[in-house]
Design a protein around this nucleic acid. Structure first.
Ligand SMILES: NC(=O)c1ccc[n+]([C@@H]2O[C@H](COP(=O)([O-])OP(=O)(O)OC[C@H]3O[C@@H](n4cnc5c(N)ncnc54)[C@H](O)[C@@H]3O)[C@@H](O)[C@H]2O)c1
Ligand SMILES: NC(=O)c1ccc[n+]([C@@H]2O[C@H](COP(=O)([O-])OP(=O)(O)OC[C@H]3O[C@@H](n4cnc5c(N)ncnc54)[C@H](O)[C@@H]3O)[C@@H](O)[C@H]2O)c1
Lengths: 207, 207
DNA sequence: ACTTTATAGTGATTTTTTTCACATTAATAA
DNA sequence: TTATTAATGTGAAAAAAATCACTATAAAGT
């Protein structure tokens, strides 16, 4: 529908805010409410909605449930999305233990590592050796993968994922994966995030 | 110097790529090398450099060490930046245990929690009760904080940080912090990152 | 029923970001 | 030494994104 990257991120924020507002008992919202809750302008909210063909009522705002439903549609929330995690170190374990993914219809289907002490077939989320990765992805038609291995291993893991049919990757390793294929890669680089923060803090000090 | 958000992120990526290229023995690089390594165009690389007044040699490319040095300057890498972490759960612990921050001159100075079983004055990075947060920030002139507490506690922690003089915050809680002040906030929302990935995977399927 | 009013929706405008294209120049080759 | 070449650096152009500003309209008030 839209091709604006920032717009997608904002829609996700609106959805997040809407769930909170709903919990507070809101039945309808105005574009300015969502703007305040997400730190943007009401015109931006309406423009974003317009790009996705989301409409409300002139003078009546938007119905919260309707909005949430439409956004769930955009993000495929009516289906459960199975995810696998490769690398069960600090980050991998943190994700595995996190309880918040279920309510976003994200299900961690399995984890993979090369450290045999981490293997476990019987836990809620099974942990398998890396050798089983390809097979598991194919058999379970997994589309989403998380890379949480050391940087030197990341490209190798990515190649296996690509070959096996993964369509989207969340990569925590601080390298840019060499990606010619159509696989979507989102990078999370925590060092870079802190660095970025430092840049703006330094810039603010100067002015 | 520059005011373009994407540009800063790209500069950070160039720096990352440069360190890798240096490790491989590169002494000079061309804008196209950096473009390839970071997935952008050579014109973009040169334009970004131009915004920061970074110059190379016509026909000779750029000297790797010089570039790294200039970028370290941009990101204040000649100083050690002290960071505190609030919330020592899954994410907080993952960050605490991560060894990669030192080489980026980021030092975790202390962590804070409300769970007394986590307090520890004697570990390399001490863990204190939340009550000590404000005092610690002031006494040690901490400028950077990480919020890794549950969403309901995040705003409260943020308020303490603001009042005590923190200038930059990395927030992992999935809420938008109400931020009127001049504090810089970078949000990392892992659910949203996965959601975003799902959006693009769905979009790719349709086309 | 009629008027007022507040908000949605959107085309037009402005601003920001990216890409283009080429003049400039330093290294290399002849 | 001179010509050739391959890269930088940057204004100009194009594209993308955000903001503005106004119209349409549904709700609330009289
Ligand atoms: N922990 C953090 O806070 C943090 C911060 C910034 C970046 N990162 C990055 O995130 C990634 C993960 O970090 P971490 O701290 O969780 O690392 P970690 O060392 O704690 O864990 C890595 C895990 O990957 C496994 N592994 C190694 N090679 C593998 C392979 N080829 N296939 C499958 N598994 C393999 C290891 O056995 C280990 O369990 C790293 O690339 C790191 O640079 C982490
Ligand atoms: N773990 C993940 O993979 C993940 C994924 C997405 C989002 N998040 C978000 O990151 C944040 C942290 O997640 P987590 O999994 O580490 O949570 P967690 O529950 O494991 O840890 C939270 C920690 O914060 C402490 N705490 C609670 N209230 C506090 C307060 N007022 N002051 C100081 N400490 C306090 C708790 O004692 C606990 O140690 C949460 O907001 C969560 O929604 C985490």
């Amino acid at each position: 529908m839209s091709t604006n990257k920032n717009c997608i991120v904002r829609i996700s924020r609106y959805k997040n805010a809407l769930n909170r507002l709903k919990a507070l008992g809101f039945v309808k919202v105005f574009s300015s409410n969502l703007a305040d809750a997400t730190g943007t302008s009401s015109a931006q909210v309406r423009k974003d909605f317009s790009l996705f063909g989301i409409t409300g009522n002139k003078r009546g705002g938007y119905n919260v449930d309707d909005l949430i439903e439409q956004m769930n549609q955009i993000f495929g929330k009516h289906l459960v999305h199975k995810v696998i995690i490769v690398g069960l170190g600090n980050i991998g374990k943190a994700l595995l233990r996190y309880k918040g993914f279920e309510k976003e219809s994200i299900k961690i289907a399995a984890a993979f590592d090369i450290d045999s002490s981490k293997f476990n077939d019987n836990s809620i989320v099974p942990v398998y050796p890396l050798e089983k990765l390809s097979e598991f992805i194919k058999e379970n038609e997994i589309k989403l993968g998380v890379i949480a291995v050391p940087d030197v291993a990341a490209q190798q893991v990515f190649e296996i994922m690509k070959k096996s049919g993964i369509k989207g990757v969340l990569n925590f390793a601080p390298i840019s994966l060499n990606n010619d294929s159509g696989v979507v890669v989102n990078n999370i680089n925590l060092e870079m995030e802190l660095e970025n923060l430092i840049y703006y803090v330094i810039a603010a000090e100067k002015s």
